[in-house]
Simulated scan of single mutants.
Amino acid sequence: MVGWQRHLQSAIRQIGKRVECSYNPSANFSSSSSSRLEGVLPYFQTLCKPSAPTISRPLHQYFQHLGISSSRTLLAEETPSPSPLTPLLTSKTGKDEEHKQKSLTKPDKVQAILKGIKQSPKKVNLVAALVRGMRVEDALLQLQVTVKRASKTVYQVIHSARANATHNHGLDPDRLLVAEAFVGKGYFKKRLSYHAKGKCGVKVRAECRLTVVVREITPDEEAEIAKLKVKNFVKLTKRERRLVPHKLIETTPIWNRKGKARERERNGAAA
């Protein structure tokens, strides 16, 4: 037992002895005071009982052994009070459950938007119309062989839309279709265009925004695609050709092809 605990125990014993010595029924005490002392005396007698000297125990256990309730027992007996953070925690868990339910319900369409494209809307729309209505895999393959500057931009947006559909909403990447691909007008910045004789004009720096919407192929469209793959030597409509592209459309420039062929022939003859 610690030293201060021993001093406390000895002080309690001395108080008990004093009370026992002062307790005398023949003394000039009133009945009320004697009744009080009668109730206090057995309590101090229990306090003055010596405990086993060889056993060293904590102070709260010593008080429990003597019959004095300590703070630890009081805290254990009390009912736990609700924490002020419990409503916040419940609200957070509720939001998590709602988010899980929303993730389980797959949306019909998923989109990706790119703003501030430094190119005119007409030029970007030429490439967007090329892959509009195609399957995502075929559209990405088509854009890889397209020799247009906007093809890289459209490729990135379609790739981002596919990533949004698969990662955020759990759609099947093999069954995705480019449902919509449209271009909107952005800021047309006006700049000075310098001419001869100290004159100047106005040139426009066009910007646009591209929106690509993808969706999953329906079972009817899958059946139609399977039928179209079997058919041979049948003239397909524009929509059917987009669903089942039999060949990649080459969009290389048509000018100066003869000149390139002649240069190759000359190089081959010289070699």
Results as ranks from 00 to 15, higher is better:
5 Q>T: 05
8 L>I: 01
13 R>T: 03
15 I>P: 01
16 G>S: 09
18 R>C: 10
19 V>M: 11
22 S>A: 12
23 Y>S: 15
24 N>L: 05
26 S>A: 06
27 A>D: 09
32 S>C: 02
36 R>S: 11
37 L>W: 13
38 E>S: 14
40 V>I: 10
42 P>G: 15
44 F>S: 04
45 Q>K: 12
46 T>E: 12
46 T>F: 07
48 C>V: 06
49 K>N: 08
50 P>K: 10
52 A>F: 07
53 P>K: 01
54 T>S: 08
55 I>P: 01
56 S>H: 05
59 L>W: 11
59 L>N: 11
61 Q>F: 04
61 Q>I: 03
63 F>K: 01
67 G>S: 02
69 S>Q: 01
70 S>I: 01
70 S>R: 01
70 S>F: 01
74 L>K: 12
75 L>G: 04
77 E>G: 03
78 E>H: 11
83 S>L: 06
90 T>N: 13
93 T>A: 04
95 K>P: 01
99 H>C: 06
99 H>G: 05
103 S>D: 10
104 L>P: 02
106 K>Y: 00
107 P>K: 03
107 P>H: 04
112 A>H: 05
114 L>Q: 05
114 L>A: 06
117 I>Q: 10
117 I>V: 14
117 I>L: 15
118 K>Q: 08
120 S>E: 13
122 K>R: 07
125 N>W: 04
126 L>C: 08
133 G>D: 04
137 E>F: 10
140 L>C: 09
141 L>K: 13
144 Q>E: 10
145 V>E: 05
149 R>I: 00
153 T>W: 03
154 V>G: 08
154 V>A: 12
154 V>D: 07
161 A>D: 10
162 R>C: 09
163 A>M: 06
163 A>V: 05
167 H>Y: 11
168 N>Q: 12
169 H>V: 11
171 L>S: 11
175 R>W: 07
175 R>Y: 07
177 L>S: 10
177 L>A: 03
177 L>K: 07
179 A>N: 08
188 F>D: 11
189 K>W: 00
190 K>S: 12
192 L>I: 07
194 Y>W: 06
194 Y>E: 14
197 K>N: 08
201 G>I: 08
202 V>I: 12
203 K>A: 13
206 A>T: 14
206 A>P: 10
207 E>D: 14
207 E>G: 15
208 C>A: 12
210 L>E: 05
210 L>T: 01
212 V>I: 11
218 T>F: 06
218 T>S: 09
219 P>I: 04
219 P>R: 02
221 E>Q: 08
222 E>L: 15
223 A>E: 14
223 A>V: 07
224 E>G: 09
224 E>P: 02
226 A>D: 12
231 K>Y: 07
235 K>H: 09
235 K>V: 06
237 T>M: 04
239 R>Q: 14
246 H>S: 13
246 H>I: 13
249 I>H: 00
254 I>P: 04
255 W>I: 14
256 N>G: 14
262 R>H: 13
263 E>W: 02
263 E>H: 04
263 E>F: 05
264 R>C: 13
264 R>S: 15
267 N>M: 06
268 G>L: 04
268 G>R: 01
